[in-house]
Amino acid sequence: MKVFYFTATGNSLDVAKRFGGEIYSIPNVLRGNQFHFEDEKIGIIFPCYGFAAPKIVREFIEKVTLKSPYIFVIMTYGNKLAGGVNWFVRYAEENNIHVQYADGLLMIDNYLPFFDIEKQKLKKKYTEENLSRLLNDVNQTKRYIRNRSFTDSMLTKGIQYFYKRKPNFNTDKDFSVGNDCNQCGTCVKVCPRNNIKLDQLKPAYGGNCEFCLACINLCPQKAIRLKKESNPNARYLNENVTLKEIIAANN
């Protein structure tokens, strides 16, 4: 089994490790020269962005060839999935990737503009129970695509339309770097886009931002901040994943 994942603060990597098999980082695959993969089972695990898939995952889907009788998709999310799973299944189909199983997994939400990480940690999300179900489903080669309501579908379409009309809504122009930055370079190492350089001993952003917020969440000094966020002191790293693993995955 081969499992492909994209992660910023560890949730999707944590899930990918639970499935086992050969694990591939999507950013690293895109930097390489191998784009054809075959196996008895192939998994794709990534977070929900805007009730759909991150841009880097879309680029992966457009570029690779996946040959398998059983392809499964797990979309991690923090509060609402809307029509994201079904949107992705259709997107994959348009790129000749045929999905047999697709579902979501509720986890901690690291989207700092809207959610306070500390409050998120207090919510019961039954992640372990739901993950056990997903693992069992895939182990049994179950065929299933998560249902969506009309409202869910319209939410996803609406948000995606908004992002197309407002391409500068989520960009690195929203970030600021405080004087408490100690030039450790962690932000450079965790960026999946190679979008950050240390310029005059401070992080400088290049405008090619995934808005995954890895640089902000994983800064040891909490020196990188958003102009607007619910709790500037709250940051997140999945407890089952190390910073070293995320650096290896994204850079």
Rank of each mutant, 00 (worst) to 15 (best):
D103H: 03
V190G: 00
D14Q: 06
N217L: 09
L155Y: 07
L226E: 08
F4P: 00
C209F: 11
A92R: 02
S153G: 12
K121L: 14
I56L: 14
D14G: 05
C219Q: 12
D174Q: 05
M75D: 10
E128Y: 12
L122D: 15
S149A: 07
T156I: 01
R58F: 12
F60D: 01
K67I: 14
G43F: 05
L30I: 08
R143T: 12
F46C: 03
I44C: 11
D116M: 12
R133P: 13
Y91P: 09
I247M: 13
C212H: 01
S176P: 07
A249K: 00
Y77R: 03
A82R: 00
F51M: 03
E118Q: 14
V99A: 02
T186W: 04
R58S: 10
I23T: 04
T76P: 01
I97K: 03
V64I: 11
Q140S: 07
G50D: 03
N208D: 15
F6Y: 01
P113M: 09
T156N: 05
Q120S: 10
P27D: 03
T141I: 11
G50V: 09
I61W: 02
G32P: 07
L122Q: 15
G178T: 07
K166V: 05
K121T: 06
N110Y: 02
D152F: 00
I61S: 01
Y236E: 03
A248L: 14
I117F: 10
